Simulated assay, not measured.
Amino acid sequence: LAENEDQTRFLEKAFDMNYSWELHHLMNAVAQRKDSLKSIDRYFQREQAVYPPDVYRMRFIDNHDENSWAGTVEERLGEAHEAFAVFMFTIPGVPLLYNGQEACLDKRLEFFTRDPIEWKECDKTGFYQSLIRLKKENKALWNGTWGGAMERISTGRDRKVFAFTREKDSNRVVVLLNFSRKSLSVLPDFSGLSGEYREYFTGERAVFPPSDSLRLNAWDYRVFVNSGNE
Score class of each variant (00 low, 15 high):
Glu204Met: 14
Glu66Lys: 10
Ala218Trp: 03
Phe89Gln: 03
Phe190Lys: 09
Ser185Lys: 15
Pro116Phe: 11
Asp169Asn: 11
Ala83Asp: 02
Asp212Val: 10
Tyr98Asp: 15
Trp146Pro: 11
Ile117Val: 15
Leu11Arg: 01
Ile117Met: 11
Arg215Ala: 13
Asn229Ala: 13
Ser185Pro: 04
Cys122Tyr: 07
Pro209Glu: 02
Ser130Met: 12
Thr155Pro: 07
Ala2Cys: 13
Ala49Tyr: 00
Tyr128Gly: 01
Gly78Glu: 02
Ser185Gln: 15
Ile40Met: 14
Arg181Glu: 15
Asp16Cys: 05
Leu131Cys: 08
Met150Gln: 14
Ala103Lys: 02
Phe190Gly: 06
Leu176Asp: 04
Arg57His: 07
Phe201Gly: 09
Lys160Cys: 08
Val86Lys: 07
His81Leu: 14
Phe60Ala: 11
Gly144Phe: 00
Ser180Tyr: 04
Asn99Val: 07
Lys34Cys: 01
Phe44Met: 02
Val175Gln: 12
Thr145Cys: 07
Pro116Tyr: 09
Ser39Lys: 10
Tyr98Val: 03
Lys38Met: 07
Val50Tyr: 00
Phe179Val: 00
Gly195Gln: 08
Asp212Leu: 12
Phe164Asn: 01
Phe164Val: 01
Ala85Phe: 03
Val86Thr: 10
Ala149Ile: 02
Glu47Tyr: 06
Glu82Lys: 14
Glu82Gln: 15
Pro188Lys: 01
Gly203Thr: 07
Met88Ala: 12
Gly195Asp: 03
Pro53Asp: 04
Asn67Arg: 09
Asp158Lys: 06
Glu102Cys: 01
Leu37Trp: 11
Phe15Glu: 13
Trp142Glu: 08
Ile91Met: 09
Asn178His: 05
Val225Leu: 05
Tyr128Ile: 04
Phe164Ile: 02
Gly71Ala: 01
Gly126Trp: 09
Arg181Lys: 14
Pro95Tyr: 00
Ser36Asp: 12
Ser227Tyr: 02
Val174Thr: 12
Asn138Lys: 07
Ala83Tyr: 03
Thr8Ala: 03
Gln101Met: 13
Glu22Phe: 08
Gln129Cys: 06
Leu193Arg: 06
Asn138Met: 06
Gln101Thr: 05
Glu196Phe: 08
Leu184Glu: 10
Lys38Asp: 15
Val223Thr: 07
Tyr128Leu: 11
Arg76Gln: 08
Val174Glu: 02
Leu1Arg: 12
Leu193Asn: 02
Ala103Asp: 12
Arg133Ser: 14
Asn143Ile: 14
Val55Cys: 00
Phe127Lys: 04
Gln129Phe: 03
Ala218His: 08
Ala2Gln: 05
Ser154Val: 12
Arg172Met: 06
Phe127Pro: 00
Asn229Trp: 11
Thr72Pro: 10
Glu12Ala: 15
Glu79Ile: 00
Asn143Lys: 07
Arg42Trp: 11
Glu79Ala: 14
Leu216Ala: 07
Gln48Ala: 14
Glu167Cys: 07
Thr145Lys: 12
